[in-house]
Simulated assay, not measured.
Amino acid sequence: MAFPDRLQLPLSFDPARLARDLDALAATSWTAHYVQQNYEGDWSVIPLRCAAGETHPIRMIYSDPTVTQFVDTPILAACSAFREVIAAFACEVRGVRLMRLGAGSVIKEHADLDLDIESGAARIHVPVVTNPDVEFRLNGSRVEMAAGQAWYLRLSDPHAVANRGTTDRVHLVLDLVADDWLRGVFETELVES
């Protein structure tokens, strides 16, 4: 079955609980995204699940496709709603991060290799906080995502984001192994939509 470049999954999460988890991390340091040529402004990350044994902040936010062992970071322990999102996926969950795009910031158009279900990896975005002036473009067309929704985006295709609002946009981003369970969720959603 051919999959579209975007798909809203049949999962939803309480935006207020997600925002409370984010608020609980107010004292936590964000790490600037390491691919600095891909953005202007503030694009930063908090790792919640990372490669086993990693302690350097940059390596903890890097999504290394060769790594097979992942562990929750101590930060995740304080975040019950984020843990529930992760638990909702009955497939192998690899890296999980909070990704913040500050007000007035831009992620330039780029593509991430092998981030598509056809290659065996799916990146899921769950907006935690957002605003109507966030413009996420995938293959040139806008994807509107509300807080608490779960979206698959084929990020091996060209995509860009602009936060033209006055508040930060924060997404919970999960890297998943595209196994039979996840493919079944996608196929069911395509048939029913």
Rank of each mutant, 00 (worst) to 15 (best):
Q37V: 11
A160L: 00
D72E: 13
F136C: 01
P57I: 10
C50D: 07
R17L: 09
S29G: 15
L190K: 02
S193Q: 12
L22I: 00
A52P: 04
W43C: 00
I61F: 02
C91M: 14
E84Y: 08
R164Q: 15
H171V: 00
D21N: 12
V191L: 05
R97H: 14
V126F: 09
G102W: 03
L101A: 08
C79G: 06
V173S: 01
L182N: 04
V45R: 04
G165P: 13
S44G: 10
E187V: 05
P158E: 07
A24S: 15
E135P: 06
E109T: 15
T130P: 08
Q69F: 06
A150K: 00
V129T: 13
V143I: 15
K108P: 08
R17N: 06
L98V: 12
S63T: 09
T68H: 04
Q36G: 08
A111I: 03
D116K: 13
A122H: 12
I117G: 05
A51K: 07
V67M: 09
G184S: 03
A87T: 09
T167N: 13
D21P: 10
A24N: 12
L190Y: 03
P74L: 08
G140I: 04
N131Q: 11
T28S: 10
E144D: 08
F70G: 10
T66W: 07
G148E: 02
F13Q: 06
E84A: 09
P57R: 02
W151M: 00
D168G: 04
R17T: 12
A2V: 15
L76N: 14
E92F: 04
M1Q: 14
R100I: 09
T130Y: 02
R17K: 05
L22F: 01
Q37A: 09
S119H: 14
A88V: 12
F70L: 13
D175P: 00
I75L: 11
L11Q: 13
Q36P: 03
E118D: 14
R154W: 08
I75M: 07
E135D: 15
A122V: 11
V191F: 02
I58E: 13
N131Y: 11
S44Y: 03
D114E: 14
P132D: 13
A24F: 11
N163F: 11
T55C: 02
E54R: 06
D5K: 12
P57A: 09
V67D: 09
T68Q: 05
F186W: 10
L76P: 08
S193H: 05
P47S: 13
G104H: 01
G120V: 02
H159F: 04
A78K: 01
D168I: 03
N163K: 06
A27V: 12
S63L: 14
L11R: 10
